[in-house]
């Protein structure tokens, strides 16, 4: 899984070098989110088969890095797993730049429990009361779940380290915006996979992590947007349809409206072919394919 994008990047670097020596190609410089690195690499690689006059060079470094480079005019296309922050908008204005967001796909965040946990579903309000600072839900019995041992009744909350994109998105979407705070009782694990592994080992755990990391030691809990609404399990279908509530859009930013090669590339990413590449990487596409 790790090797493929690395190989893709190496190939792109080589292609870039060729472009420099021949001068026949247009290069699109694409930089940003680490979450999107694999899918951005897959897009660039697939696009190489489609066109013979455009080369896309991709690198990571984080959403913030990509946006800063776009505002500084160093790149053509910035990958970001979040919208611009107010201070970034202000800095762009000061430099007379106009970053425009283009939604290119989705990333679903699933709620995980141990595979033996019988929990049927959770509402968004319950999730906030579980993970949010001051929330009153701390025991499985409060949710009508009996794990068969009083020691297992306290809910073990599993979160991520405080600067991961998943952490920030969960805070935005579930804990009520940027001012939201997690309970201090949360464990803060250092990777999407670690959260799922932990939930598979601890019977009283409740965690959130990327949909793509599911395995058979855990169960994904369906989520209800409102107290009455239907319980929706995350899948590419429900996320694309917008019925699953905890999915974040993935963006590419251009400086001003896209032009020339960048526009061609972006149009292809939004086409069925481009969206199929995204789906193969395990991310929900913008519309049903």
């Amino acid at each position: 899984m790790r090797l493929a994008p690395t190989a893709a990047l190496a190939g792109l670097l080589l292609a870039t070098a060729c472009w420099r020596s021949h001068g026949r190609y247009t290069e699109i410089r694409n930089l940003g989110s680490d979450t999107m690195l694999e899918v951005a690499g897959a897009w660039a690689e697939a696009y190489d088969q489609v066109t013979d006059h455009i080369v896309v060079s991709v690198s990571g470094g984080g959403s913030g890095t990509g946006i800063a480079a776009l505002i500084a005019g160093k790149i053509d296309l910035a990958n970001s797993s979040r919208l611009l922050k107010p201070e970034e908008v202000a800095r762009a204005r000061k430099r007379d730049q106009d970053p425009i967001a283009h939604k290119v796909g989705f990333d679903g965040i699933a709620i995980y429990v141990h595979r033996d946990n019988p929990l049927r579903c959770l509402t968004m309000a319950q999730l906030k009361a579980l993970f949010g600072d001051g929330g009153e839900l701390t025991r499985w019995s409060q949710l009508g779940v009996d794990l068969g041992d009083p020691k297992l009744d306290p809910i073990v909350l599993v979160s991520r380290q405080n600067n991961s994109g998943t952490y920030e998105y969960f805070r935005e979407a579930v804990l009520g915006g940027a001012k939201g705070r997690f309970k201090l009782e949360c464990m803060n694990l250092n990777g999407s996979k670690d959260v799922v592994d932990f939930c598979g080992k601890a019977r009283s755990a409740l965690g959130y992590s990327g949909l793509a990391y599911a395995n058979d030691t855990v169960r994904i809990v369906p989520v209800m947007r409102t107290d009455e609404g239907p319980a929706i399990a995350p899948s590419t279908a429900t996320i694309t349809a917008g019925t699953y509530p905890i999915a974040r859009p993935l963006y590419m930013y251009t400086n001003g409206p896209p032009r020339g090669a960048t526009q061609e590339y972006l149009d292809w990413i939004l086409s069925d072919d481009g969206q199929r590449v995204l789906m193969h990487q395990g991310y929900p596409p913008l519309r049903p394919l």
Partner: peptide, 15 residues
Amino acid sequence: LNPLIQQWFDTPVGL
């Protein structure tokens, strides 16, 4: 150690 601690001390969390 994580599963061993869960088993020996009957605690919900081994980390």
